[in-house]
Amino acid sequence: MPQIVLQQVCKTFVLRKRQKGMLGAMRGAFTREKELVRAVRDVSFSVEEGELVGYIGPNGAGKSTTIKMMSGILVPDSGEINIMGRTPWKERAAHVSQIGVVFGQRSQLWWDTPVLDSFELLRDIYRVPQAAYKRRLDDLTALLDAGSLLNTPVRQLSLGQRMKCELIGALLHAPRILFLDEPTIGLDAVTKLALRAFLADLNRREGVTMLLTTHDMDDIEALCSRVMVIGRGALLFDGDMDGLRARYAPHRVIRARLARPCESLDLPEAESVSLDGLNAEITFLPARVDPARLIARLAEACPLADLTVEAPDIERMVARMYEEMAL
């Protein structure tokens, strides 16, 4: 049986609308308009042990709500969630001792005291024996190069340093599943790379299942074998990166620099052709046209100085996908 199973999970929030201004606020004390927001609708998926899954979607799509339901913070209105044989909100304590959760935007550590104090409190909260704690802490600090941070108060850490400590804190009790909600938000490139390497390594060595939400597609490309896309509460895609490209960005673009000016280019197989002086841009669907034949035809029509074939930029693809969802 898969480690995580969601079946037709729905969650609706009731928002109370208030009018702006003082008068509106006072009126709001007596009458309120209600608005139903269907944050998650009929989402079903399952995740096997050891999988590394990326969960993407625009702001407000329902990513965090899904993660919160899986962590036992929120109770779905309908549907089933089963994680390691348990329903998260029914057996909260047993469930949360097996998972780790990292919120990129919210700290789990105590602000004013050295990081080590937070870790020792977490050790006792999760009932980790001292010997195991010591070993675990040494391992994790070595891997994240965080040994020098342990005696610094959290408020004095940089965002990147804090994130490393958040990760250590979430892993001290050796959870089998790790939920990461925007773990790389606001981090510099070097720290991002270090975190990705750490997560990939942890997944490989310990088989920890990971589900991460992000807006950084490099996170997904570097880490995730599987990606799920959610938009306006509904699951729109579940598959690998190649599948996502095939579905949302099937086009390839040939950019050619011509050796000499050309009157016109006639390539009926291509989806579109544009010519600007010596630069030609040809869009085609690899599913319909053999790229080699298309390039040969192009070279026949016009001598070429240079040529590249590109897949669309993944960020742009996702942006277009999100725009489509908003319609």
Binding site: I73, A93, V96, Y126
Partner: peptide
Amino acid sequence: TGEFDRLLLRPRA
């Protein structure tokens, strides 16, 4: 502020 989330994530009463 939603800080209550943190309590729900810990295996204690």
